[in-house]
Amino acid sequence: MSARALRLSAGLPARVALGAVALLVALFLVFPVVIVIPLSFSGSEFLSFPPESWSLRWYADFFTTARWLESAWLSIWIAVVAAILATVLGTAAALGLARAKFPGRAVVTAFLLSPLVVPAIIVSIGVYFFYAPLGLVGSPIGIAIAHATLASPFVLVNVTAALAGFDPRLEQAAKNLGASGWSTFRLVTFPIIKPGVMAGAVFAFIASFDEMIVALFITSPGNVTLPIRMWESMRNEISPAIAAVSTLVILLSVSLFFVAARIQARAVARSGGDR
């Protein structure tokens, strides 16, 4: 309504100016990300813009270099484990916070969301000192657990949003019809909030996949995640390989976002769009 009013009241010059500003902001946001894509197809030995020749050699380099592939698989493995852990914990927390009425709910919510706010470097130091006596420093599972704590707020936020549109009477109806607590969750609650859970899982995966600071603290020479490998590569050699890897990472992230968007769109279509 207000957008419509704006459009009607603003004249042509004003609209052109607004469009130009919007375009500049969009370019500013996207440019640093997009710039690496042409660089990745460079045929030369060094990073230079614009590339002097074109080739796929840096992609070939990535897919044939063991340390790149090892790091990529390690990061994917960690991100999958972290996303699963974060999704289970975040969903459980969202359900608990949405249902239970207890004093200090707001405090508990803030506490659970705190990984979003606390500086990563603080978390890293904490995790390091916590892990050291447990012998988790340097282990992939240790990184996955640390990432799960950082990623769980994304799940909590997404599932809480999904639960806000969920009619609790559906659970009453399921129980009234003879469903146990678990059946009610499995057959009624979960299918309806699934888009929120899936979106949360995708965000959690991405949060872990590109996390570097915590990983840097508890990594070991044998277990180097992809962001750390990229950082080291950047510091040591500055070859266009880094651009190829970056492009692949962008591709993965963007595809995951599309997957999440599709899940959500399908859910809306299935429920008729009125929920």
Binding site: R169, L170, A173, A174, N176, G178, A179, S180, L187, I192
Partner: peptide, 20 residues
Amino acid sequence: MPPAKRDIGMVFQSYALFPH
């Protein structure tokens, strides 16, 4: 007895049909 064990049919105010 928990609701699931009572074997009582119920029609809810807004029907509470499972949308999926």
